[in-house]
């Protein structure tokens, strides 16, 4: 079984803790005085999404989760499952609604995603950090109001709702940061 030393710890590393797959969110190195060093980490359970704190003695070996991050192309959704294809083997994978989580709301088709597989089964999906999506519905734009900080909701072509500045119009294409779910800028056609 592959394992990691604590000095390899970094955000995104997948660990097997008590038989469950976890991903490191934060890793803090602490060393008391002249004493033993520790790594205090925040990890997310890849099955339940729950975030917990763990503390390891620095230098300890921790079993790696048997997961594989695989680049795949998003194909389509039938409402129940989201279908992805591994571009080298053309093998297709169906991802459940639960495993998709928040990722589903940013996908319209063709996006390159990272699908995390546990024992060959899709566990979670990471979408690109930035996506470009068209607005299908929002209140009419307020002209000239580009300076004040006001926002309004806008529904995108995938159904996601984001806050946008007041001057944004229906039909415009926006660049969205999927990590924060925030509007970044308009995309000029």
């Amino acid at each position: 079984m592959a394992s990691y030393n604590t000095n390899e710890f970094r955000a995104g590393l997948k660990l097997n803790l008590d038989g469950e797959p976890y991903s490191i969110i934060e890793n803090e190195f602490v060393k008391p005085g002249k004493g033993q060093a520790f790594n205090r980490v925040k990890v997310r359970n890849l099955k339940t999404g729950r975030v917990v704190d763990r503390t390891f003695k620095s230098g300890e070996s921790v079993e790696a989760a048997d997961v594989m991050d695989t680049d795949m192309q998003y194909l389509y959704s039938d409402g129940e499952e989201w279908h992805f294809m591994e571009p080298n083997s053309y093998e297709q994978f169906a991802v459940t609604k639960e495993a998709m989580g928040d990722a589903a709301q940013w996908l319209k088709g063709q996006e390159e995603c990272v699908v995390t597989l546990l024992d060959g089964q899709p566990l979670s999906v990471s979408v690109p950090n930035f996506v470009e999506l068209q607005i299908t519905e929002t209140d009419p734009g307020v002209r000239g109001d580009t300076a004040t900080g006001g926002t309004k909701p806008a529904t995108l072509e995938t159904g996601a709702v984001v806050k946008v500045p007041l001057f944004i119009e229906e039909g415009e294409v926006l660049r969205i940061d999927t990590r924060s779910g925030e509007y970044v800028s308009r995309v000029k056609e």
């Binding site: 008391p32 004493g35 033993q36 520790f38 205090r40 704190d53 003695k57």
Partner: peptide, 21 residues
């Protein structure tokens, strides 16, 4: 203090850790 350690420590290691953290 909601701290879960991965392994048991010696008394000295506990003292160092508890003082620091």
């Amino acid at each position: 203090h909601s701290i879960k350690l991965s392994t048991a420590l010696t008394v000295q290691q506990y003292q160092e850790f508890v003082l620091d953290q």
